Simulated assay, not measured.
Amino acid sequence: MSAPVADTRLAVLGKPIGHSKSPTLHAAAYEVLGLQWIYERHEVDESTLASFVKSRDSSWRGLSLTMPLKQTIQPHLDQVDRIGELTGAVNTVLFEWGGDTVHRSGFNTDVPGIVRALGAASVGSVRRVHVLGGGATAASAIVAASELGAESALVSVRAPERAAGLVPLAASVGLTIDLAPFDAPRDDEATELLVSTLPGGVEAPLDFSAAFRARVPLLDVAYEPWPTTLGQAWADAGGVVLGGLAMLVHQALLQVRIFVAGDPFAPLPDEESVLAAMLAAVGLAADGTPLAR
């Protein structure tokens, strides 16, 4: 397979996509790496995904995927990594060209991105996690929780029957799981981490006590607008709160590894400087909290 060249092209796809910070993050990384690569954003939905992917030429190295494409890309790929198969969600596509033919590989960098973001905020292990929402990112949050040592998960959703697919997923990674509607009673005493996977602008239809907010770290994967109502409530209680930008940075770093070396486990040259530049580009400190302005 041919190596990427100077005019290599990349893009993030989704709908809506205008708010995406991925171009900012990737531009910062490639500048440190000395790569004059082009990273764009394109508004693509399920109906136009196949044609977009299949119409790329050999100048293209890969794609980042956001809502609503993470669970619909797989039929257009030749290979999917273990986490992508496990979660059913792929957020990264690598193009490897051999003449006029291309091999398309899919990866899920959301799971390690969650783990890395929480680790940077000194959240290294949990026994029980509470997840808000039941979509693709919720699946990644459950697998990430298992990698943090969690034994059980509570998933709050509007319609539990629509999130039934999370039950076998949790079992496959050794978690017991409870699905509950948003208005159901919650076992707050056992929870050690709250992860909200609700889209930006969607209010969490449940309340948490000030004591809970002060004790339990929150990862809210939304980042536009920020702070969310939930994130602000955590900050007001003096709790540990991470926004979606922290997760986005760490999963994007792994995407850069994939696009540069074809391997999410291969560290980049001077990776510490690359990560620092990506964090600075979106105004975050090393622990994922916003820099003082």
Score class of each variant (00 low, 15 high):
residue 1 M to I: 14
residue 7 D to E: 13
residue 8 T to A: 07
residue 9 R to A: 15
residue 10 L to M: 12
residue 11 A to G: 14
residue 13 L to M: 08
residue 15 K to L: 05
residue 15 K to Q: 13
residue 16 P to G: 11
residue 17 I to S: 04
residue 19 H to K: 00
residue 24 T to C: 09
residue 26 H to E: 15
residue 28 A to N: 06
residue 28 A to R: 01
residue 28 A to K: 00
residue 29 A to E: 14
residue 31 E to T: 13
residue 33 L to R: 07
residue 34 G to R: 00
residue 40 E to A: 15
residue 48 T to H: 09
residue 53 V to E: 07
residue 55 S to I: 00
residue 58 S to V: 01
residue 63 L to E: 06
residue 64 S to N: 13
residue 64 S to E: 14
residue 65 L to K: 00
residue 66 T to N: 10
residue 67 M to F: 13
residue 70 K to N: 14
residue 71 Q to K: 09
residue 75 P to C: 09
residue 84 G to P: 05
residue 87 T to G: 08
residue 89 A to Q: 04
residue 93 V to G: 07
residue 95 F to L: 07
residue 96 E to N: 07
residue 97 W to G: 01
residue 99 G to A: 06
residue 99 G to D: 05
residue 100 D to V: 14
residue 102 V to A: 03
residue 105 S to G: 08
residue 106 G to R: 06
residue 107 F to M: 11
residue 108 N to F: 13
residue 108 N to H: 07
residue 112 P to S: 01
residue 112 P to F: 03
residue 115 V to E: 08
residue 117 A to R: 02
residue 119 G to W: 07
residue 119 G to A: 12
residue 122 S to I: 10
residue 127 R to S: 15
residue 131 V to Y: 02
residue 135 G to N: 01
residue 135 G to S: 01
residue 141 A to I: 02
residue 142 I to F: 00
residue 145 A to L: 05
residue 147 E to Y: 12
residue 148 L to M: 14
residue 149 G to H: 11
residue 149 G to W: 04
residue 154 L to R: 13
residue 155 V to K: 02
residue 157 V to G: 11
residue 159 A to P: 00
residue 163 A to R: 13
residue 164 A to H: 09
residue 167 V to P: 00
residue 168 P to K: 01
residue 170 A to Y: 02
residue 170 A to W: 03
residue 172 S to Y: 01
residue 175 L to W: 12
residue 186 R to I: 08
residue 186 R to A: 12
residue 187 D to S: 12
residue 189 E to S: 14
residue 192 E to R: 11
residue 201 G to L: 12
residue 201 G to R: 03
residue 202 V to G: 04
residue 204 A to H: 01
residue 205 P to S: 15
residue 207 D to S: 08
residue 211 A to K: 00
residue 212 F to P: 12
residue 213 R to M: 14
residue 213 R to S: 12
residue 219 L to G: 08
residue 219 L to M: 11
residue 222 A to S: 06
residue 225 P to Q: 05
residue 226 W to Q: 04
residue 227 P to T: 08
residue 228 T to Q: 00
residue 229 T to R: 05
residue 229 T to M: 05
residue 231 G to Y: 08
residue 234 W to E: 14
residue 235 A to N: 05
residue 252 A to Q: 09
residue 254 L to I: 08
residue 254 L to N: 06
residue 257 R to L: 11
residue 260 V to A: 02
residue 261 A to S: 12
residue 262 G to R: 10
residue 263 D to R: 10
residue 268 L to W: 10
residue 268 L to C: 10
residue 270 D to W: 00
residue 272 E to M: 10
residue 273 S to E: 15
residue 282 V to D: 08
residue 284 L to F: 02
residue 285 A to T: 04
residue 289 T to W: 04
residue 289 T to V: 10
residue 290 P to K: 01
residue 291 L to Y: 07
residue 293 R to D: 13
